[in-house]
Nucleic acid binder design. Structure first.
Lengths: 211, 211
DNA sequence: AATTTAAATTTCCTATAGGAAACTTTTGTG
DNA sequence: CACAAAAGTTTCCTATAGGAAATTTAAATT
């Protein structure tokens, strides 16, 4: 190894710089480390990974050792070839036990009941506090549209998936839309919204609201 | 070795090639088009976007016009600077009404496919940008745990509901837990996690990740 | 331990991404 | 319409990513 050639392969890799005058700082990310972990976890040699991705052995090696910053194209090939879950790559380097993780399980029909006049809520995963999302199932009674007086409207966003039956979603600014089992909708919850069952029986939906 | 030697600035851009001998084919993706839409939607000039991202005006222009394939670093700066939801970039070009409205509907089985080796993703509601949550359905193949020893791990939180079949959730720090249809789980996604189907056939789950 | 074989890294070179500035196009404004 | 100002594109150049092959390192096999 040349001793004067401290540029590459030493500490300050290309990936680490990434700060320009007033540009947004981009954290190291250690993409290479991650990729190597993934490759090894899949018991692949560079040669095999090369065949899978279409990138040269040398290139893969350099990426893993953070000697180069791959092009977006290369990243695409990598993720496609190795079957990598994309968000995985954008996670900051995992270090230490990160023990502040928690999990919270709710069995079927064992959520926390929370009835209102219009809906029958079953809150899910209520053990965990300060969640970024609030999931709940909801039985939407078969009823007419004119039962409700005003829009529901609140901060954040909402995702809804129809689990059973058929519902009609009313939102401000749009025409009502019918959703059947398996259909889903995402919307800005600040926009007035409400839900009605249009099947004979009550419909059931899953709702997730963000903060 | 280029048989046609596509010149830059012509039509067949670099992004379009991306096929090497035995490499995985990477679809065009039209990243540039996407980015331009986002920039314009935010009422930004190239100059402003340049300040936000730390990339040169010229570079941004070239990326938008698909004259160059940005490096991963550049993509990071872009997403960080413009506040772009990363998975959105990996979603194939959205066509049609380019809904950037306030609601976004996905009919059953009409989400955007996004297969990986381990999971079969179907992204839901991909028309809307910069969502706080990313919902997708996922077919978990019936397979053994030892096919992947590495955890998935990323920022944010995750909610999962089992739609069909039976799965086993492995997470760091906890014992594996079996979830049947209707069961749900919420967890800190920084904690390593992965999923295995324990039913005969593939299982299906709904996943919602937060940012 | 010595030798072979496989895996990973480095070197050298070509192709191409990124930045600065020149140039062109578009959008105002009198 | 003329002209100015702003936004966008292209050119030219430097820095660096990617590929082929050489080199080094690690893992087997005897």
């Amino acid at each position: 190894m040349s001793e004067q050639d401290t540029k590459i392969g030493e500490q300050p890799s290309v990936l680490e710089v990434a700060r320009k005058d007033d540009g947004k700082f981009v954290e190291p990310l250690q993409l290479g480390k991650r990729l190597k972990e993934i490759r090894l976890a899949n018991n692949l040699t560079l040669e095999e990974a090369s065949r899978l991705t279409g990138l040269a052995r040398s290139t893969l090696s350099k990426i893993e050792n953070e000697q180069i910053s791959p092009t977006f194209q290369a990243v695409q090939k990598l993720t496609a070839g190795l079957g990598i879950d994309i968000p995985q790559l954008f996670v900051p380097p995992q270090d230490g036990p990160t023990a502040n993780g928690r999990r919270d399980i709710t069995r079927k029909d064992e959520g926390t009941p929370h009835p209102t006049t219009t809906y029958e809520h079953e809150l899910l995963c209520t053990q965990m506090r300060d969640k970024k999302m609030v999931p709940f199932k909801c039985t939407v009674r078969a009823r007419s549209f004119d039962d409700f007086e005003d829009w529901v409207r609140h901060e954040g966003e909402e995702f809804m998936l129809v689990l059973a039956g058929q519902v009609e979603v009313y939102t401000e600014f749009y025409e009502p839309v019918k959703l059947a089992e398996g259909d889903s909708i995402y919307y800005d919850a600040r926009m007035g919204h409400c839900l009605v069952s249009v099947s004979k029986d009550d419909a059931q939906v899953l709702w997730v609201t963000s903060r």
